[in-house]
Every structure is written in C-alpha cells, then in structure tokens.
Amino acid sequence: MTDSSNVSDSHSDFDFLSVQEQDFDVAFEYAQLRENNSQDGAIVFFSGLVRDFNQGNDVTGLYLEHYPAMTEKALAKIIEEAKSRWPLSRVRLIHRVGQLYLSDQIVFVGVSSSHREAAFEACHFIMDYLKKKAPFWKKETTKKGDWWVESLEKDEKALDKWQDQ
C-alpha cells in the first residue's frame, strides 16, 4: 500500500507526502531537501521510532491503523498550515502504517528554510499537529496482550503553544 504524491498544485514541486508500509531512508530524504537548493541555510528533520516501553511495558511492536481516504488530506492541510506560518521552501513528510517492530522508523518530517528558526519551529509544529489531527491509531503488541494506545493530554497541550502565533 503506497499512496504518495506532491502535496498540491499550489505547493512547491519539492514538497513530498507519503503514507506507506515500507521503510524510508533518512539520508535520501535529507538529500532531497538539500539538492539544488542554494537558497536555504537550514534543514531540520525529525524521525519517530518504535520504542520498547509506553503505556504498557514490554512493548514488542505496534500496528498502525489509519483512515486511508482521509490521511493524506489531513497531512496536506498540516503542511499547508505550516507553510502559511513560516517561510519554508521544502517539506517532506512520511508516515508508515501497518505492522512495525522495535526501533522501526514510524514517521519522518523534514523541512528546509532560509533560516534555522523557521525550520526548527515548523518541524516541531508539524509533529505536534500530526499527533492530534491526522487519523492514525497505534495498537501496541506486548507480551501480555495487545491494546490501543490512549491519546495523551500532553499532546493536546502541545497544540496550545501554537495557538497565539
């Protein structure tokens, strides 16, 4: 299941958005942000990984469900919002779905900008919004059984800091 595209016609041809089962290569993504891009002095990226503890202990993996018809649309809106707030040249966003195991990569967000402040803030903003606005759900696999991850209040609060800007 691969579903990838440029974000929209109104955006830079360099923007990239993908919801996919397969892994991604951070070096490749970084190179795409950097290639033929002498206008930008800053690239910031984040990668999220499957860790061995969460609300349950002894996590052995997780299954990521999503709402296929909506996922890409929701992510494109978040990118659009970030680009309206900061001068970003390129945005690359990849989110994996399906069965993942410990240390697997889940998500990549990379942005380029002329200046580092915009790149740092926009990358942070995109992750905070993704965690509350994009239709993904994690089901953890543990040695004691499987359960759905609960959403956290701290993720809700994380959005507050962006409201006034």
Binding site: Y67, A69, A74, V107, L130, K131, P135, F136, W137, W148
Partner: peptide, 24 residues
C-alpha cells in the same frame, strides 16, 4: 475533514467516528 458534532451532513456524505488519534 474533522468536524464537531453540530456539523452538517448531506446525502452521499461519508461520516467517520473514531477515538482520539495516536499517530506520530
């Protein structure tokens, strides 16, 4: 599109219900 429960629904629309999201 995420909406509140007072949002309008028209014939042919798709309405989704789901728990708070936990991606990222």
């Amino acid at each position: 599109d995420m909406v509140q429960s007072d949002a309008m629904v028209n014939d042919g629309n798709e309405v989704a219900f789901f728990p708070p999201v936990t991606g990222g």
